Simulated assay, not measured.
Amino acid sequence: MQLSGAFDDFKRRQSGRLENVEASIDGFQGILDDIAAKEAARVNAGGGAHNARPVDPEYTKLYASWFRYGQDEREVAQANRSGERARINAAMTVGSNSDGGYLAPTEWDRTVLQQLMAVSPMRQIAYVVPTTVNGYTTIWSDRSVGSGWVGETTARPATTTPQVNPVAYTHGEIYAYPFITQTLLDDAQFDVVQWLADTVAEELERQEGIAFLSGDGQNKPRGLLTFAPGGLHAASHPGGALAVVNSGHASQLTADGLINLSYGLKAPYRRNATWLMSSTTAAVIRKMKDGQGNYLWQPVTVAGQPETLLGYPVAIDENMPSVAADALPVAFGDFQRGYVINDRSGVRVLRDPYSNKPYVGFYTTKRVGGGVRDPNAIVLQKVGA
């Protein structure tokens, strides 16, 4: 009995110790969870990367100071008094460029890309991939794998093998060169770094939008429409040129032509297909009716949902051609599979206080490429009988 009682007492003491250990673990886990929650809330405050904590806070601070003041004779003269500005460039060697420019902080670069994504129709619907090397390469396969039916003891001869080809998308360099007075830089109470991001994004979007559709590939992307039969890059993709469906009229679009276009795209690609056209073309199509007098273009009935044409969403890009004889005013397809945009990570800024006094210029460059990824994924409507 004494042994049994001693054993029971030992079990109670061990159980108590175990409960204390578990309570301590729970307490530490609660502390860690609280820290993680507070950190996540702080990083995401304001909604997204626009207000996220800088990847390198010290570099970001120096970049903003360099943006306003640079490093000129005035700073050197003030160095003995302040001991700050003359050391800006020396401390920014991590982002230096041989021509005197600097790599923009990561969060600034991210802000520019987010603004481009928000306003660029092609960036919203195409496949966008960032790269850290000079270009982007993918592999194209014709998927021609042979097969056949055989009996239990029938010989199995070799079948055809799919052909595989690399497809490269090299970068072109795009630039913006906005100016602002040094006085405004010195005295402005607004965020001049954000001003540059906004200005650059607006100009880059304008230039990119043109190149993504009609770029000749010379120091710029290869435009979507240049892959049409007879186009500059019709023979550059191993998968061939984009398919073209005539509208059925020498100078106009027709309802039957649009229906033929939609079914000219193979079924696997139609699942995620989108129409692409300009506003002037959309105005023409918006008035079209079917044989029962119903508009082909369906109005939006749910807030935030895109308008649809024949059941598929419509993207408006003002760089698409207008309706005219032999023009290609409408594209239809799965642009995620059909067109790739490759961004070379990093925006570089060269501060120029000398070329146009009393203005300070900010020569800003970015490298971007683009081209058709899968020619089977997009079809074009050509105005013609």
Rank of each mutant, 00 (worst) to 15 (best):
L232S: 10
A234N: 07
A234R: 08
A235S: 15
A235L: 13
S236E: 11
L242Q: 00
A243H: 10
V244G: 10
V244R: 07
V244F: 11
V245L: 13
N246V: 00
G248D: 09
G248L: 06
G248R: 09
H249Y: 10
A250Q: 13
A250I: 08
Q252L: 15
A255S: 12
A255P: 09
D256R: 10
G257F: 01
G257I: 04
G257N: 05
N260R: 15
N260S: 12
S262R: 12
S262H: 03
Y263L: 13
G264Y: 01
G264F: 06
G264T: 02
K266M: 11
A267E: 15
P268Q: 01
R270P: 07
R270H: 07
R271W: 05
N272F: 11
A273I: 02
T274P: 00
W275P: 09
W275Q: 06
W275E: 06
L276F: 01
M277V: 04
M277K: 03
S278F: 01
S278V: 06
S279E: 12
T281C: 08
A283N: 12
K287L: 15
M288D: 02
M288A: 05
K289I: 11
K289V: 14
D290P: 07
Q292F: 10
Q292E: 14
G293Q: 06
N294W: 12
